[in-house]
Amino acid sequence: MKRGIPLLIVFFTGMIWLTQYFIPHYPFNKVMNLLSDWMKIIAAFAMVLGILNLLRVNFIKISRKHYNWQYSIILIIALLITIGFGCIQGITENVDTTILVYNSKSNEVISSSIFVAPAIIEGLKNFKPISSEDVEKDGKKETIQKGMMDITTKNGKVVKYTDSNPVKRIIVKDDNSVIETVIVKTGTVGHWIYKNLIEHLSSTMFSLLAFFIASAAFRAFRAKSFEAMLLLGSAFIVMLGKVPIGDVFGKIEIHEKIIISFPSIQVWLMNYVNTAGQRAILLGAAIGIIAISIKIIIGLERTYFGGE
């Protein structure tokens, strides 16, 4: 029973998935979407398990003062901050944020955020409107302008709001006051974390690849055997064929129309020899995938259940 039900589920799911590919009629055409939705739901629950596992592993590390346990504190704090802001604000890129509410008649700042209020007021003097419209809201006349302006932040950085990302300025006039509300598009904290931290950290890891390639290539290109020499030779030709200097020398004209050069050999190596090898691997892998899928569907392959 313990294995029987999962195997039956696998068989039916596999068969339904296979059938829907060839039969586009109802109800098979809906099955793929349904199963995809189920998978997303399961993945969402599994994500909770993953986070709990992460917290558990790191809490144990902190409590037992394992080697470098301090990093676990940073990880947990970063995780909670990211989840917290993500749950509250989402991770959208453009959110309308009111940075200033200002009574320009009495020169009084009602509220401000992110930027320094005087800097915004100063920036408003050079406000260049792109569009302007008058609307009536709650019996009051509002002028909504969109325009370009520069705002200096606390640390002296000038943020430019151009026509692609304009500032929204709402002016409400009455006898006693002229209330100006300045709204800009900002990303959420979750978006900021992603854009300014995760992206750069990922790029840093990715850039390490250049050094790893150099060290791996150094080992691979040592001409210790005939195969290694072939590898070295073809690598040398491909590298020369890819750089401009390869086009300058080493040209052999066999015929008026046939000129052998490093770029031409490189193109030949990449388009024929390399492609043939890659396709052979892909073909083998594709057949392997079909075979393993059939074995999974018919219940022959059960190793992913933990059994031999």
Partner: peptide
Amino acid sequence: GEELFAAS
């Protein structure tokens, strides 16, 4: 390639 799938 397929050696991975032949492993089990």
